[in-house]
Design a binder for these strands. Structure first.
Lengths: 229, 229
DNA sequence: TTTTAATTAATAGTATTACTATCATAAATA
DNA sequence: TATTTATGATAGTAATACTATTAATTAAAA
C-alpha cells in the first residue's frame, strides 16, 4: 500500500486547484525550482510558462498572481511540516525529547520526501528560508490574514506551543516561542549561508551548531520558568 | 551647542550623497514616509518624484534603484541604533542592566529624535520592522555583503555580542544571539500588530510583554550557560 | 567679463512586468 | 452526439524600472 500525502490548501489562494491536473502539478514543481533558482523578485509567470512549454495565460488560470503562489507554497510547506512533526513525535512520551525532535527537524536541512512526486521538499525548504517572510511582509497582510491564508503557520505554532506547554504548563509565551523557533531556524540558516558574520557558526558542523544554539535558547527559557513556577 | 548626529554610509549605496543637498534630504525624508505608507512593493521612484515635485530621473541621480535605497535606509537605521545604544549604555557598569536597556530599546517603539530633522526615526522603525528583511533576502545578498553593504548590521551585532560576552564570557553564540534579539524584536512586533495569533501578546501592554518575552529568552539562556560554565 | 565646462532639470523613449481578453481546438463527459 | 472543460495561441494595456537626449542653469577658467 502506498501512502499518499495530500495537503488541504485554502481555496482563496488559487483559481483552479493545481494538484488536480498535470499542468497544475507542473506549475508547482517548476515554480519551486525557478523561485529557488532566480529568487522571487526575478521569477515571472512568463518565464515559468516558457519553462513548462505552456503560456502565461495558462499559468494565470491557476494563480491570480505570483504573491498568491508564494503564499500557496508557504502554506504547503507548513502543512507538510505539521504532518511530519506529528509523524516523528508520534509515540514519544517524553516532553523534552519531543521538543528536541521538533527543533532538530526545523534547524536541519530537509530531505526530499518520495511521497510527493511533484514537490521537492529539499528545494522548497531552501526557498522558504529565503522567501517565506515575503508572503506576510506586505501591506495586504491583515486582509490576507482575515482570509485565513496563514492558517497553516498558525496551526504549526499551536502544535509546537502545545508541546511547550506540555513540558512546562506555566510558560507564558508558548505561541511566541513557537513562531520564534521557526523564524530563528530560518534566518539563522540564511545568515550562516549568506552573511556568516551575523552568526557564530563555523563552516563545518553548521547545522549541528544551529540545533545546539536553538535548543539551548528554547530549553533554558522553558526550564527556567518551570523552576520559578 | 547643538549636537548633530551624522551617519557614515557605504558609498556604494548611492550615486550622489543624499545628505549633501536639499533634494537628497527630501528624497530621504519622503521615501521613509512613502515606503511606510505604501509598502516597499508599491513604492516607486516616480511616485516619490511627484511627491517632492522633482522628476524620476532626478531621483535616479541619487540612487541607482529602490533596492539600494532600502539598504541605505536600513544602514542608516542600524548606524543610528548603534549610536543610541552606546549613548544609553554609557556609564552603566552592571552587565545585566546594560543588556536589559538594549533589549528594551529594541523591543519598544522608537520616538522621533529631534537631532535629525529630515528622518523621522519613529516612522523609520515601523518601516524597518516590515521591510528590512527584504534588503538581504535577495539573490544578490552574497555580492552585496562583499561590498560591505550590511556592515552596520554586523557592527550592532558585534556590539551587542560584546555585551553578552561581558555578562558571560563562556557563552558560545554571542553574535547569533545578538542577531536573534534584533530579528525577534522585529518580527514579533510585526506579528503582534498584524497576525496576532502567532504571538501571546494581548492588545494591551503589548510592548512590555514583548520586552519580557525577549528578556526572559536572552537572560535564561546566558545565565544557564554561566552556571554550567 | 566672457567663454567654456560641468551640473542639474525636463522630456521622451524602451524593454519588461503583470496582467486581461478573445478565440480556437482538443479531450473528456453526459 | 452535444457539450462542458482544459489548454493553446495571440493580442493588447497600464505600469514599472530604467536610459538617453536635449535644454537650462551654475560655476570655473581664460
Amino acid at each position: 500500500m502506498v501512502f499518499q500525502f495530500k495537503v488541504q490548501i485554502n481555496e482563496g489562494l488559487f483559481i483552479r486547484n493545481p494538484e488536480d491536473t498535470e499542468l497544475g502539478r507542473k506549475i508547482l514543481k517548476h515554480s519551486v525550482q525557478m523561485i529557488h533558482q532566480l529568487g522571487f523578485e526575478d521569477f515571472t509567470f512568463k518565464k515559468l510558462a516558457e519553462e513548462i512549454h505552456s503560456t502565461e495565460a495558462g499559468v494565470y488560470r491557476y494563480f491570480e498572481n505570483k504573491h498568491k503562489l508564494l503564499i500557496y507554497l508557504t502554506s504547503w510547506y507548513f502543512s507538510w511540516l505539521t504532518f511530519h512533526i506529528k509523524f516523528i513525535t508520534n509515540n514519544i512520551e517524553n516532553n523534552k525529547d519531543r521538543l528536541s525532535k521538533v527543533i532538530s527537524l526545523l534547524a536541519k536541512p530537509i530531505e526530499d520526501d518520495e511521497q510527493t512526486s511533484y514537490i521537492d521538499e529539499s528545494l522548497l525548504h531552501s526557498l522558504i528560508v529565503a522567501e517565506a517572510s515575503k508572503s506576510y511582509l506586505t501591506k495586504q497582510v491583515v486582509e490576507n490574514n482575515k482570509q485565513h491564508f496563514f492558517k497553516p503557520y498558525q496551526d504549526i505554532c499551536n502544535l509546537i506551543g502545545d508541546f511547550i506547554l506540555a513540558y512546562n504548563p506555566t510558560y507564558k509565551y508558548p505561541k511566541s516561542l513557537a513562531s520564534t523557533i521557526i523564524e530563528v531556524a530560518h534566518f539563522q540558516n540564511f545568515f550562516m549561508h549568506n552573511i556568516s558574520s551575523l552568526t557564530d557558526f563555523s563552516k563545518k558542523k553548521q547545522e549541528s551548531q544551529l540545533v545546539e544554539f536553538l535548543s539551548d535558547l528554547v530549553f533554558s527559557s522553558i526550564e527556567q520558568r518551570r523552576d520559578k513556577g
